[in-house]
């Protein structure tokens, strides 16, 4: 998000982003994306070495990559969030076995929390009470 909040332009952008965020499981998708990215970052073996190993080595890259894609799809295609979040949680748990103990646990945790948030998200909810009070004041 651009920080400069003085011009009307950036205010509009902020509002647009807020509305965009309100219509999708934003944190769920973001955490799942970050989890996938973190696991990929912990894997630095050259592709040549991975190809030596074959399928098992490939799965180590395949699962976090698909995690990352699921996270992005939750953000940009929230209508299908249930499927993506179910896939996301299975992949997150799978990375424990295939990818450096789930990116040394960090990526697994991010992915699992993100998937659960996306799964539990519902559109069109009543505003929080805190928000109500502020609007009335």
């Amino acid at each position: 998000m651009s920080a400069g909040a003085r011009t009307d332009d950036s205010r509009d952008l902020r509002d647009a982003f807020r509305r965009w965020r309100a219509n999708r499981p934003f944190w769920g998708g973001l955490l799942l994306t970050l989890g996938g990215a973190e696991i990929l970052l912990t894997e630095k073996a050259s592709l040549k070495v991975v190809l030596h190993i074959g399928m098992q080595g490939l799965a180590g890259y395949l699962l976090p990559t698909t995690m990352l894609l699921c996270g992005l799809l939750i953000l940009f295609n929230p209508a299908q969030r249930l499927f993506y979040s179910l896939l996301g949680i299975l992949l997150s748990l799978g990375t424990w076995v295939t990818s450096n103990l789930g990116g040394f646990f960090v990526g697994l945790l991010l992915g699992a929390v993100g998937s659960c948030l996306a799964f539990g998200w519902l559109p069109d909810q009543k505003p929080r009470r805190r928000l109500l009070r502020r609007e009335h004041a």
């Binding site: 309100a22 659960c116 539990g120 998200w121 909810q125 609007e135």
Partner: peptide
């Protein structure tokens, strides 16, 4: 019209996935 209706995480719904996932992990 006052407040716009936002999407939100329902805790119980999230728990449906979170509890079995924690057990599997």
């Amino acid at each position: 019209g006052g407040q716009d209706r936002r999407g939100r995480v329902r805790l119980r719904r999230a728990a449906v996935m979170a509890i079995p996932a924690t057990a599997v992990a």
